[in-house]
Design a protein around this nucleic acid. Structure first.
Length: 897
RNA sequence: GGGCGCGUAGCUCAGCGGUAGAGCACUGCCUUGACAUGGCAGGGGUCACAGGUUCAAUCCCUGUCGCGCCCACCA
């Protein structure tokens, strides 16, 4: 027996264990079923489940459970990501709390510490995925830093290096001075900052009293200036080109160069060039062969090594002592001091407020500093071409399609990918250096030693590159590295390319694009056939969920409070194509109501002897109710399936919801009540079997999204063993079960009941007051139909009897028109004649407006001539219908007099 | 500056050439033996605005306004 209320907490964990123990989640590579593979976007190993995961994982689980029921051999690959920076930061914070630091304990101890932290906290995220109900094949769980995946990373690095697709380069990178590491372009976000524009005067050498004024938002970089650039066609500055200016403070002489980079519209038209600290200036510097002195170190503090020797005093312009006093100061402090000094020297022309975009590190928020360093790069441009071709040729597709444009736009213009990070936690770069700087890239140190020995002709002392790889480097290999690559495993053979990738659009560049590039390069095939991109989870006000706003909902709290099924259903029903999902506790609560509704419907069925009938053939159901609900169920199954095929999770949820609540519960069970509660009704067996059939279909339909409650009901009502709904066949819509005559009949009865309810409610007839309904002008078949449904009509519309009006119109009766018949409800004393008159007139008015609208159309010769014939015909029929109804309404009005 | 998306009922959204829909919220009635996490009924929308295409536009096209996001850009 089902309990009075469904208690998710009681069933979720045991049921999950049961599934897992039974091997229901395990892929079976030897089966003859068609494979269906999905790779989990690996969450951070030390992370916790947030709303975004709840969305992403629920959608994947729905797809995977649906395909499993359809008879696919499903592999949903679990695993976690080592998340370089994020994890390192967490552990560093822990060390700080203990009064020590990464540097104090050293690299080896630090890494050991991170591993320990991973062992300790690494299970939480996966356990939280279990709580959500995610049917991952845990036996195959992987970690981006496990031995196998690390080997894959080294293999890829070595191969790409050999192919010239990975190389070292000295150029400007985006540098995060707080982490002391390079970061990729993608990890930089520009934020609008209200700052200042300082206009600085640079004295022209050999021309006392002449200045060229430059505008800058970053005066502290002027120490590293190596030129002033003006536009070659800018007449204002033409005379200066080729001459020298004295760089204030330092006394260095720097040239004025002509370069089209300079924009006459901006600032003064003359721009200071600091090649080592600005991407544009770097290019100008290269074009003009300028020096590239660095004046900021890895922590963005002033460093003078590159310019120390050039410092010289110039009266009223430069003072080496002042410049030396800046050494070691932060860029912010130096800025203040330098502006003050410039002002003192009378070289600060003016200051303007200025709002501009400043690059910040996405993680951590530090202001990013362009910095000249040697880093490892991946030639993304060459890898991008095959990836774009694959999408163009439809070898894989994005859903929704519009994301392909975003993908192409980025790929066309892709920049070299900086893959080295000055961190400790991650895949150490497999490169070793000889004392002379010679580079040996190899799978391991022994191999590198061998290379070195061959190179030098003798064994040599080597040092490994201290850097690690960008976390996304290993993520990019995920679809094949998890399947055992570089070994040619049976799994790789069977599941690659995978079927679908489900992820957020925010990591198209970070992850999706790179998987496509790596997959094509190393596997010669796309990593997935379809990539479904969903939106972000937002709060109920549409704001991005964030820790700082504190507006995030905690999925685990939602599960505790409402159950995993409710959370999953809420998420699913909010996922339309290409839209963000707004998730609040209210939505989850609403979904919990649906879980409860289903539970109660099942309980009602159970109480009334509804049990799955073995060998029941829906094609031979006799009773109209049976035939009707079977047909409706088929339709719902077909709709739900089509929705899932199209990744319309919202439509899937709503078609299952509407069928369950608005068809099965509201009408079918209500109609069926007397039959179901009877032990002697001749059709009881037939209707019970149909009820059981439809309920079973509901359970199967909803299982992918609400696995716990459906599985529980499934077992308790005897559809199967506990835990086997997950592997039961998905319902397939069968058109052969549609029955138009029956659906017209039920539809008519539904309208009959609804109309009467409406009139009674409008006339404020007390529900307890039963009243007869008398048919007027009805066909014999209609009368017969009404009488055959009189029991249901009586109960559901509070009707005492269904009869035929003979003789006089009773006094004080309400009337309503249903097709050819007029229904008369004698309610003397209960209805206000005037109210009834105005009700009928209002209805008549509404019909009149509709009629006129349609008639105007038909009066238009162009409409009749050009519209599709069936539309014209339909319009004519509508007019006829309106006219008939109005005639009956007007007759009813006359009878009131 | 370039691009993408979105403006439909109080809220969240669906619909996308021919009768404007759902859920929630709201109002009224109902402790009817599955369910008050419920039932029944109801009110509520110049489908952002302006042009155009069409026999017909919420839906297609153009423009305007508003909102969001992505890319580029520290003069």
């Amino acid at each position: 027996m089902l309990e009075k209320t469904f208690r998710p907490a009681d069933v979720e964990a045991p049921l999950y264990s049961l599934w897992e123990a039974a091997g229901a989640f395990a892929a079976d590579r030897d089966s003859s079923k068609p494979p269906f593979a999905v790779m989990i976007p690996p969450p951070n190993v030390t992370g916790t489940l947030h709303a975004g995961h709840a969305l992403d994982m629920t959608l994947q689980d729905v797809l995977v459970r649906w395909r499993r029921m359809q008879g696919h051999d499903v592999l949903w690959q679990p695993g976690t990501d080592h998340a370089g920076i994020a994890t390192q930061l967490v552990v560093e914070r822990m060390l700080r709390a203990e009064g020590t630091s990464r540097l104090a304990i050293g690299r080896e101890a630090f890494i050991a510490r991170v591993w320990a932290w991973k062992e300790q906290s690494g299970g939480s995220i996966t356990n939280q995925l279990r709580r959500l109900g995610a049917s991952l094949d845990w036996g195959r769980e992987r970690f981006t830093m496990d031995a196998g995946l690390s080997a894959a990373v080294r293999e890829v690095f070595v191969t790409l290096h050999r192919q010239g697709l990975i190389y070292r380069d000295r150029r400007l990178v985006n540098w995060d001075p707080e982490f002391g590491s390079a970061i990729s372009d993608l990890e930089v976000e520009s934020r609008e900052v209200r700052g200042h524009l300082w206009y600085l005067r640079y004295p022209v050498a050999d021309a006392t009293g002449e200045f060229v004024t430059v505008a800058t938002t970053r005066p502290e970089t002027m120490l590293g200036d190596s030129a002033v650039a003006v536009h070659p066609e800018d007449t204002r500055h033409a005379a200066l080109i080729g001459r020298q200016v004295v760089l204030p403070l330092t006394g260095r002489l720097i040239p004025v160069v002509a370069d089209t980079y300079s924009d006459p519209e901006k600032g003064t038209g003359a721009v200071k060039i600091t090649p080592a600290h600005d991407f544009n200036d770097f290019e100008v510097g290269q074009r003009h062969g300028l020096a590239m002195p660095q004046v900021l170190d890895g922590q963005a503090r002033i460093v003078l090594a590159d310019i120390e020797e050039q410092l010289r005093a110039v009266e009223g312009v430069a003072d080496p002592e002042f410049v030396r006093s800046l050494a070691g100061q932060s860029r912010e402090a130096a800025r203040i001091a330098m502006i003050a000094e410039m002002e003192r020297l009378g070289l600060l022309d003016r200051v303007e407020p200025h709002t501009h975009q400043v690059p910040h590190a996405e993680r951590g928020g530090a202001i990013v500093e362009p910095r000249l360093t040697t880093q490892w790069y991946c030639d993304a441009k060459r890898l991008a071409a095959p990836a774009m071709a694959a999408v163009q040729q439809n070898r894989m597709q994005f859903v929704p399609r519009q994301w392909e444009n975003t993908f192409f736009a980025w790929m066309r213009d892709i920049q070299p990918w900086c893959i080295s990070r000055q961190l400790w936690w991650g895949h150490r770069i497999p490169a070793w250096y000889g004392a002379d700087g010679e580079v040996f890239v190899a799978h391991d140190e022994a191999q590198a030693q061998a290379q070195a020995a061959a190179h030098y002709g003798a064994p040599a002392e080597l040092t490994q590159d201290p850097d690690v790889l960008d976390t996304w480097f290993s993520s990019a290999l995920w679809p094949f590295s998890t399947l055992g690559w570089p070994q040619r495993t049976p799994e790789l053979q069977r599941y690659y390319p995978t079927s679908v990738l489900v992820t957020g659009f925010d990591i198209i560049f970070f992850w999706v694009a790179r998987m496509i590039m790596m997959g094509l390069h190393f596997m010669n095939e796309v990593p997935f056939r379809t990539v479904f991109l969903h939106g972000l989870v937002r709060d109920e006000q549409g704001r991005k969920m964030s820790k700082s706003l504190g507006n995030g909902i905690d999925p685990l709290e939602m599960i505790d409070q409402y159950g995993a099924d409710a959370l999953r259903f809420a998420v699913c029903s909010m996922t339309g194509l290409g839209r963000d999902a707004r998730l609040g506790a209210r939505r989850v609560e609403e979904s919990r109501s649906f879980v409860t509704k289903l539970w109660n419907a099942a309980r009602f069925c159970e109480m009334n002897g509804v049990r799955p009938a073995t060998g029941f053939d829906p094609h031979v159901a006799r009773h109209p109710l049976s035939r009707w609900i079977i047909a409706e169920a088929q339709q719902a199954a077909a709709d739900a399936n089509a929705a899932l095929e199209a990744f319309r999770f919202d439509d899937y949820a709503s078609s299952a919801y509407r069928f369950t609540w608005n068809r099965y519960c509201d009408w079918f069970l209500e109609f069926a009540k007397p039959i179901l509660s009877s032990s002697v009704h001749p059709e009881a067996g037939d209707v019970r079997a149909a009820a059981a059939y439809a309920l079973g279909l509901i359970l199967r339909l909803l299982n992918p999204v609400m696995p716990f409650v459906t599985e529980t009901i499934w077992a308790d009502l005897g559809y199967g063993e506990r835990g086997d709904l997950i592997t039961t066949a998905w319902p397939i819509g069968d058109d052969g079960l549609q029955d138009e005559a029956v659906s017209r009949e039920i539809d008519w009865v539904v309208r009959f009941i609804t109309e009467i309810r409406t009139v009674r409610a409008e006339m404020n007839v007390p529900p307890a007051r039963m009243a007869p309904v008398l048919l007027r002008d009805a066909h014999a078949a209609t009368v017969e139909r009404a009488q055959s449904w009189s029991e249901a009509i009586g109960r559901m519309a509070r009707v005492s009897e269904v009869g035929v009006l003979e003789g006089e119109m009773p006094r004080g009766a309400a009337q309503l028109v249903l097709e050819e018949a007029t229904l008369v409800l004698p309610l003397e004393g209960l209805i206000d004649l005037e109210a009834e008159r105005s009700r009928l007139q209002r209805e008549d008015g509404r019909l009149l407006a509709e009629t006129e609208k349609a008639e105007r159309k038909l009066a238009n010769p162009d409409f009749v001539a050009r519209a599709r014939p069936e539309i014209v015909e339909e319009t004519r029929a509508r007019v006829q219908g309106f006219r008939n109804d109005r005639a009956r309404l007007q007759a009813a009005l006359r009878r009131l007099d």
